[in-house]
C-alpha cells in the first residue's frame, strides 16, 4: 500500500533513540490526550524533527529538542511516540 518509493527510513520509538540521534515523528496516537496536548503546545506534532539531547539515570526523563526548543519528556511517554529515523 506504500505509494512512495522505498525509503531509507526505519520506524522506531522515540524512547529507543540514543543521545545525538534525530528522527521525524510519525505517530502520537498511543499517548494520552493530555500529553499530546502539551506537546502540541510546544509545536511538537506529526512531522516534527525531534533530537534526543540527553538521557537521565535510571530511565528518568529525556531531554529533547524540536524547532530549536528544548523540552523534557518522560521515557515511558517517549517510548509511545513512533518516529522515522532517516
Amino acid at each position: 500500500m506504500t505509494s512512495h518509493i522505498q525509503s531509507p527510513c526505519t520506524c522506531k520509538s522515540l524512547g529507543h533513540l540514543k543521545p545525538g540521534e534525530a528522527a521525524y515523528i510519525t505517530s502520537l496516537a498511543r499517548l494520552s490526550s493530555a500529553v499530546s496536548h502539551r506537546l502540541l503546545d510546544l509545536g511538537v506534532t506529526i512531522g516534527t524533527l525531534v533530537k534526543v539531547k540527553r538521557c537521565s539515570l535510571l530511565g528518568g526523563p529525556l531531554m529533547l529538542e524540536a524547532n530549536g526548543q528544548l523540552f523534557g519528556l518522560r521515557k515511558v511517554e517517549a517510548t509511545l511516540i513512533e518516529v522515522d529515523v532517516c
Binding site: 494520552s32 502539551r38 510546544l42 526523563p61 531531554m63 523540552f71 523534557g72 519528556l73 511517554e77
Partner: peptide
C-alpha cells in the same frame, strides 16, 4: 490518574 510531564526548558 495519569500524570503529565512535559516541561519546556528555556535557554
Amino acid at each position: 490518574e495519569q500524570t503529565v510531564f512535559v516541561v519546556e526548558l528555556p535557554p
